[in-house]
């Protein structure tokens, strides 16, 4: 079959004219792209809120309020509390429990408090980092998937060329064009995912550092209270 020279190449016709495997690849990439964009927007909302809540709590904490009062508030608004507030709550609860049993060693008391805070910190980090692995894998894998579709399409284009005595560019061009659509799609899915992943990873990292330093400072404050 000679692809006619005057064949009109619109994107739609390229996609519908592609082989089944290329179409499957395209569909897969479209899904990956859809989900990665969905998670990108979701993550933007989540991280923005996490940063806002952390800011608010830090302001409250360092404005010099009563720790017991702060703790009460954190317990009451547990559902809407930020990560930092949860860490504080966990640490303070552990600390006050130990303190009631008089006669415990300061080292043991502080260790327990730190452990409680560390556990909450891990859980919070896990939440903040959710969906990031998905973005990472879309970013790294979808170019390869697209490339696979392209290679397959070009293979077909050349195979069709085999039984043509006089090979012209017009014989291969449509096949290659439709094959390259797969690469374009793969890159379209990968580029935003990679950019978003790097951006979000940076954000999460910064939050983690803040939590870490808060935990250290809070431990110091508690230790001072013991004496």
């Amino acid at each position: 079959m000679i692809p006619s020279l005057s064949q009109n190449m619109s994107v739609i016709s390229l996609i519908t004219g592609a082989s089944v495997l290329v179409q499957i690849v395209l569909l897969l990439l479209l899904l990956a792209s859809m989900f990665s964009w969905y998670y990108i927007f979701l993550k933007i909302f989540m991280l923005k809120r996490a940063t806002r809540l952390a800011n608010e709590f830090e302001k409250d904490f360092w404005s010099g309020g009563d720790l017991n009062e702060l703790y009460q508030r954190a317990v009451n608004s547990r559902a809407s509390a930020g990560s930092l507030e949860r860490i504080f709550e966990a640490g303070f609860r552990e600390f006050s429990k130990h303190k009631k049993q008089s006669g415990t060693d300061v080292g043991v008391l502080m260790d327990g408090t730190r452990r409680a805070m560390r556990a909450t910190y891990q859980r919070e980090m896990d939440m903040l980092e959710s969906y990031l692995p998905f973005l990472a894998s879309v970013g790294s894998v979808s170019p390869y998937v697209g490339l696979f579709g392209t290679v397959w399409g070009i293979m077909n284009a050349f195979r069709g060329l085999a039984n043509v005595a006089q090979a012209t560019l017009a014989h291969v061009a449509p096949g290659i064009a439709e094959a390259l659509i797969a690469t374009a799609m793969g890159l379209f899915a990968a580029i935003p995912a990679v950019v978003a992943y790097n951006h979000f990873a940076g954000d999460v990292n910064r939050l983690a550092t803040r939590f870490d330093s808060f935990m250290e400072e809070f431990s110091n404050i508690l230790q001072r209270q013991v004496h």
């Binding site: 969905y38 989540m46 559902a79």
Partner: peptide, 22 residues
């Protein structure tokens, strides 16, 4: 439940925005 998970609203908005992007 927890703040760290997105609310339903945010999910819908995100889905719609992803669709618009495509």
């Amino acid at each position: 439940m927890s703040y760290a998970y997105a609310t339903q609203d945010e999910k819908t908005i995100s889905g719609a925005m992803a669709l618009v992007m495509h």
